[in-house]
Design a binder for these strands. Structure first.
Lengths: 195, 195
DNA sequence: CATCAAGTTGAGCATATGCTCAATTGAGCG
DNA sequence: CGCTCAATTGAGCATATGCTCAACTTGATG
């Protein structure tokens, strides 16, 4: 393979690892899949990442934060209530459930891999923080809003995780449309609840 | 190893497989772990189960239905509202999150393994059915109750899955106590919502 | 051009996995 | 006692995995 600067190569490896992990799952993805995908020798991968566990954690970290940043960009400027609906729609627009597959796979694996746990705890915190902030803003806009925005954010985040998990099972009866409706109803339940 | 009747041996293998899967995860558990655990030759396992995929699916099936049956037994006789709270408490009483670990691991793996998908779709259907039935009964008791019991059951089941997933991540800030409170609040949201 | 450090290679080791198959064991039965 | 057949064995094959290491290539630098 052509020569590259260290930083570029490193980034290319991470990007390839994300694709491989999406296709084979965290537990089955292998270093050879990554090196074959970009046509480099096996030694090169270990030159940039001392172990597969570290590359894997870095891949999940980048994928998770890319998604969080993308959602932030998508809702930027919108009024809070509309932003919240847009955020909820994100999981439906996601082609082939790419992001959710990686997210839930990593969450599951994070109880066997300390590196992944660190990554996921940070990402989950940011994700819930984003939701909680939107709920608070929505409350100020309309006067109402959930009594406890943090608790509501926990419920909404967990609900989305759970629905996405159900959607990912092969031949599941859960569809994006149903999930969308269920989340919308949850939003109404949370926001119309009396303090 | 001592001789056994076919049925007993088969059951012993499944039970051992469940333990192995709990310890290593579905993706990492291996036939050798099972045969070593009960001290038999590798050929014996394949005498009862043509492939690891089938043993694995059978193990998950038994574990899932054992849990559903156990919950049913635990809430049997209770008034619906109390039964619902008892069901929600189940996830906290579960030592070391044994059941949730297997449940979520299987759900995650079920999008790569058709056999597991079949098993999980059936188990998830029964689980939601149980919750929906309780919600309907609770509605009749108190007069109120959720407008759409099936939708409420979906939300409660997904919420519990999501919270359990968060709880399973190492060093997670989600604790059984918090989860218990969040589910309790969700129950109130669902049941006090005006039709 | 020569030098040198960074990028890159890939055969190879140790280990692990699902599964096969010919052979062995043993309980029940006439 | 011998016979039969289900239960059981375990060495072994083909394949896969993370990682090492000595050697090689190449671009920049003086």
């Amino acid at each position: 393979m052509a020569r590259m600067s260290g930083a570029d190569r490193r980034q290319q490896i991470v990007a390839a690892a994300i694709e491989v992990i999406l296709q084979r799952g965290l537990a089955q993805a292998a270093t050879r899949d990554v090196t074959r995908a970009i046509g480099v020798g096996s030694g090169l991968l270990h030159h940039y990442f001392p172990s597969w566990a570290e590359l894997r954690a870095e891949a999940v970290r980048q994928a998770a934060w890319q998604e969080i940043d993308a959602v932030k960009a998508a809702i930027s400027g919108l009024p809070a209530r509309a932003a919240m609906q847009r955020l909820a729609d994100w999981m439906i627009d996601d082609e082939d459930m790419r992001h959710w597959r990686l997210w839930l796979n990593a969450q599951d694996e994070a109880h066997r891999d300390p590196l992944l746990a660190e990554v996921m705890n940070a990402a989950m915190l940011a994700w819930r923080g984003l939701i909680a902030e939107l709920l608070r803003e929505a409350g100020e806009e309309t006067g109402g809003g959930p009594a406890d925005a943090d608790a509501a954010a926990w419920r909404l985040a967990a609900l989305m995780d759970g629905l996405a998990g159900a959607m990912l099972v092969r031949d599941s009866v859960m569809t994006p449309q149903i999930a969308r409706n269920l989340i919308g109803m949850q939003l109404r339940l949370e926001c119309d609840s009396s303090a």
